[in-house]
Design a protein around this nucleic acid. Structure first.
Lengths: 259, 259
DNA sequence: AGCAGGTTTTGAACGCGTTCGAAACCTGCG
DNA sequence: CGCAGGTTTCGAACGCGTTCAAAACCTGCT
């Protein structure tokens, strides 16, 4: 609400550095990479460990601080709130997913296959966190929270995920046959599709989320079918309408990078 | 988590009485309708008023109690948590919506019209609560919360809303032309459609939620078109697949009353 | 060494949701 | 009336997220 004090970190981790390793190229001018980053990482790791051990609610900020051997205030110096800890986690998981999916898609060229692999990969990556991830997606529906995968303009995780789905498409056999504009929309749509699956997943209490896996197995071919069918003449008007709707109403609300 | 103490109310308001007026038919044997119900109502009204005045977060339980002239402990005797206050509110709003929509649909027979009226009616009914309603739908995505419109088996509000959409369909011109099974599915699907619109609405910050209204205006005809198209032979296989998917995976997770 | 500027760390304190044991209030029964 | 059993009300106390003013810790500069 109020203005930030000085140059507190923890708020603006979006623009800072794009890559993963935080090596400043030329200089040891400011010893930026030193203690500060270390503490930050320590807090995040400790928090994640405790979240997995006891769940989100049960893990208190005091416990995190104690376990990490620092003070509560210090944790708040790096993370504006408890929720921001999850943000850090989620960013990491998304990258993990993108890497794993890319690896597993190698060799597959059929669209349905690639899509299925990408989604399964997400389920596998997220599985260890199933219980406490629910907590994350709870706040996803909050427009005031900067955690929302929708609202926040520069959500790094979303960009990564959409990029992955672009890859799913471009590496597949249907790519060249599709209407160009539609091809541009699809990655975002597939990401939305993933969001729906995630919603389903969150509510899924079967062991190993078997139900969601079955859901993916059965829904993926249909999605593929729809994509393929969309090329036929009969559907043109409908496809055009839907495309317009999405372009005008959905995409603008989730921050796009370019047109 | 733990077991409830004695016969605390506030938890089981689902089964108790189906109707609205809580008149016990024959008897003043137990003076059930007396002080207790009054206090409960007083708390709810006070809470709603304050929520609208200052928003959900800013309204403290202490403030509600003070304003209602009771103690905090007493408020918790009737409502298991702050969230449960919203539940009470939401149930009421849903009924209000159903009544308003039914009234406004009179005379309209075209499916698209009726659907549009029903959705617009929701937007009008919910408009006064736009800001703090967001808080409600935030917790809707929480599988552990009994507020969730999805998970909770016997959510009164959902039953009401689905009933309304059944009405939208049966009172329309397309009703007799539809495949019977599909006709049984549709009310639930339309309800899901509303949930998506609500999600959109929650994020909509334009004045009077004009953007969502426009979204509804443009998306409704498409939905109608899809419904009508679903009768054509070409789509049969796809429709059948989708129907199976929904029947097997979606509906079971949201508590249906009957098959 | 000593000082000025910033960054990092601390821990006590605040506000709020929630709990709980005890009081107050019924109401019917002996 | 007096008492037992239940319901309703109370408010102090607990735990947790979060804030904040002050301390500690860096540097680099003179």
């Amino acid at each position: 609400m109020d203005e930030q004090k000085g140059g507190t970190p923890g708020m603006d981790e979006s623009a800072q550095d794009a890559g993963l390793g935080a090596e400043l190229p030329g200089g040891r001018a400011r010893p930026k990479t030193g203690k500060s980053e270390q503490t930050r990482a320590l807090i995040l790791e400790t928090a994640m460990r405790l979240f997995q051990e006891r769940g989100y609610e049960k893990t208190t900020m005091r416990a995190i601080a104690a376990e990490a051997g620092i003070s509560v205030g210090n944790a708040y110096y790096y993370f504006a709130s408890k929720e921001f800890l999850i943000q850090g986690f989620y960013d990491g998981m998304t990258v993990e997913h993108a890497v794993d999916a890319a690896r597993r898609m190698q060799g597959h060229t059929e669209f349905a296959d690639r899509l299925h692999v990408a989604l399964s990969s997400w389920l596998d990556t997220a599985a260890p966190y199933h219980e406490f991830a629910a907590q994350f997606f709870r706040t996803a529906a909050d427009p005031n929270s900067s955690l929302s995968p929708f609202a926040n303009e520069s959500h790094r995780a979303r960009a990564t995920a959409v990029g992955l789905f672009r890859d799913v498409l471009t590496g597949s056999d249907v790519a060249p046959k599709l209407d160009k504009e539609l091809a541009e929309l699809l990655p975002d749509l597939l990401w939305l599709h993933l969001m729906i699956i995630v919603l389903y997943w969150v509510f899924d209490h079967t062991p190993d989320q078997e139900r969601t896996r079955e859901f993916v197995r059965r829904s993926t071919p249909m999605v593929a079918k729809v994509v393929v069918l969309s090329r036929y003449r009969v559907f043109r008007p409908l496809v055009r309408d839907v495309k317009g709707l999405i372009q005008d109403f959905i995409l603008p609300t989730i921050g796009r990078t370019a047109t």
